[in-house]
Simulated assay, not measured.
Amino acid sequence: MAEKAGVSIGTVDRVLHNRGEVSAVTKEKILAIVNDLNYRPNFLASTLASKRETVFAVLLPKAPSEDSYWTRPMSGITRSADELSQFGVKLELFLFDTEGAASFIEKTAEILENPPAGVLLAPWISREARLFTSKLDALGIPYVYIDSNLKATHPVSFIGQNSFQSGHLAAKLLNYGLPEERTFLLVHVGRELDNQNHLHQREQGFYDYFNEKSIQQNIIKIEIQESETELKQQMAAKGLSPEKVDCIYVTNSRVHLIAGYFSSLNLHPRIVGYDLIPPNVKMLEQDAIDFLLCQNPEGQGYRALNALFDNVLRKLPVEKENFTSIDIITRENLDYYSAK
């Protein structure tokens, strides 16, 4: 191309990357040749050559233990980061406590002190996440959601499960083969529950199944933090004895807490929850949990960072919504799934 234009390689490089001084006539000549040749610069090769560093911020809940859910997406993010490090990608991790909003707000403030090239985040609490992403929008910083999505915001992409559909599926699994007028328990376990959008989407999908099919079941909703005592108190307050519960839907990975309580009473209602973490696997193997709905969190983390990389550095369009599969895991297929 340089030879065809009668200029140096350096001049061509300045035009292609819009840097340095080049006369208008020379620039027009080079761009015309670029158009004739349908030339597309190899951005990755030029990035490797320039040794430039690009910082992405990762904002996720802090995993309380090695057995908890949030270790899984982090492993996928780490794997992607290792592969992308050759292109100058560097991660800065910001892990917040899920006890309330304060830690999330603190970490978002830290991110904005030194704005990164892009942000990968779990919008774990809706109100604060909306405020943070509005600031990213104002700064022109792209961001990718993982695990849950927020309407009326502007992420480059969302990678995660369709929460509404997974709730719909949970209802179908629990209700299969049952007569009407059974007692169903819908349990949210955690803090800031009114501010967790994906749990409410799962709940809405659950109710939608029964409304769509015009099935009459007695559905009782309970919200607790993380205490068996709370569960007993909430059930007692609603006049519900454990023996009367036919089916239970737990909207997150803490299903093992509920299954463990009923198992300790030698009761075995049909139970559906989320995620293939060790405490849930144990309950599944013991038939205390019937179904786990899994969403490949490692794959979510891997795909989310790649989507941010493709958008920010490769300047490629990425899918607005990337729904992961909704895998139904039982004791019978557990070993096959674990081997993936």
Rank of each mutant, 00 (worst) to 15 (best):
P317F: 02
Q161T: 14
P242W: 12
I159T: 07
R14H: 05
K232H: 13
N195M: 12
V15I: 13
E243F: 01
P278D: 06
A129D: 05
I326K: 03
A237C: 06
K340W: 02
S126P: 01
R127W: 00
Y302S: 09
G118F: 13
S338L: 13
C294M: 13
E223T: 08
R40K: 14
L136W: 10
L308N: 09
I215E: 05
A101S: 12
L185V: 01
P116V: 02
Y261W: 13
L31E: 13
R270D: 05
E83V: 07
L186E: 11
A171N: 04
N311Q: 10
T98A: 10
L84D: 09
E212H: 13
T108Q: 04
L267C: 01
A45Y: 14
A171I: 11
L91C: 02
V245P: 10
P116Q: 09
N42D: 15
S264R: 11
N114K: 15
F96N: 01
P269S: 10
V12S: 02
S325K: 08
A152T: 00
N311A: 13
G76R: 15
G299Q: 11
S241G: 05
I77K: 07
R40M: 11
R130I: 11
R52V: 02
K27D: 03
Q233M: 11
F96G: 06
P73K: 09
S241C: 07
I125P: 00
K27H: 08
P269Q: 04
D290F: 04
K213G: 06
N149I: 05
D97S: 15
Y302H: 14
I289V: 14
S214C: 07
D147Y: 12
P242K: 07
P73G: 04
L150A: 07
Y145T: 04
V250Y: 03
M283Y: 00
